[in-house]
């Protein structure tokens, strides 16, 4: 690899740029993911959702993109953990006895991005085992026949619906979505700052978009299990 690239990517700003770019990419994924998942609310035995899920797992372009997504998740998580370790070292062995956490604009969540991110990572592992693994290789998943289809397709809807009959599962998902919201609240505007995209006129807009987005995504994802639990 090029030396300039290695130097850049291992520098403190380079690492942050990786966090910013992967983070923004993951946010864009979340938007698509939410739009798709809202099909879960369309009822009708979940046909719309199952057809959407089939499309997502069989379209070659989306498949290709998904590898980018997996890579981004890994990179974001690993880089995040490395930064967290580095920052702990920088802080030194002796911590403050009293520390006021004042900020100038950023949310208090910014102090805990590592911890919040770790929770989200754990959530993600559980989430993937529950749905993604099952979709691809699982045994718990049934198939279903729809009119107009020449073969049965996976009934992911049934799996999801079943999962959300458990109130604790619903609570778990909702709580985790709060963390996702907090993570994005800081993450979105932070990414722009890291990329140097800061401007007297536009930064306030970036902040508003980031906040609307983080609330909308968190609320949107949280509504699904609640709605499905209530409408089981």
């Amino acid at each position: 690899m090029n030396t300039w690239f290695v130097r850049f990517i291992t520098s403190s700003i380079g690492k942050k740029v990786v966090m910013a770019l992967t983070g923004l990419f993951l946010i864009s994924f979340l938007i698509i993911h939410l739009i798709g998942n809202l099909q879960l609310l369309s009822g009708a035995g979940g046909q719309a959702f199952n057809e959407y899920a089939y499309f997502m797992t069989h379209n070659p372009l989306i498949k290709a993109t998904s590898y980018g997504l997996y890579a981004s998740i890994l990179l974001h998580a690993i880089q995040g953990i490395l930064l967290w370790i580095k920052n702990r070292q920088a802080r030194g062995s002796q911590g403050y006895a009293v520390k006021a956490n004042r900020t100038a604009g950023a949310s208090k969540a910014s102090y805990r991005m590592g911890a919040i991110g770790s929770i989200i990572l754990i959530f993600l592992v559980i989430h993937l085992i529950q749905f993604w693994y099952q979709t691809h290789w699982g045994s718990q998943i049934e198939t279903v026949d729809y009119e107009g289809w020449d073969q049965p397709i996976n009934d992911l809807y049934a799996l999801v619906a079943f999962t959300y009959t458990n109130i604790w599962m619903v609570v778990f998902y909702v709580v985790c979505m709060i963390f996702v919201g907090l993570h994005l609240w800081h993450g979105f505007e932070s990414a722009f700052q890291t990329l140097g995209l800061s401007h007297e006129k536009w930064t306030p807009l970036v902040k508003i978009v980031g906040r609307v987005l983080s609330v909308a995504l968190a609320a949107g994802f949280a509504i699904i299990p609640i709605w499905m639990y209530l409408n089981q």
Partner: peptide, 11 residues
């Protein structure tokens, strides 16, 4: 350490 845009510095 690495900046994570917490803005405590400015505060």
């Amino acid at each position: 350490g690495r900046c994570s845009n917490i803005t405590a510095c400015e505060a």
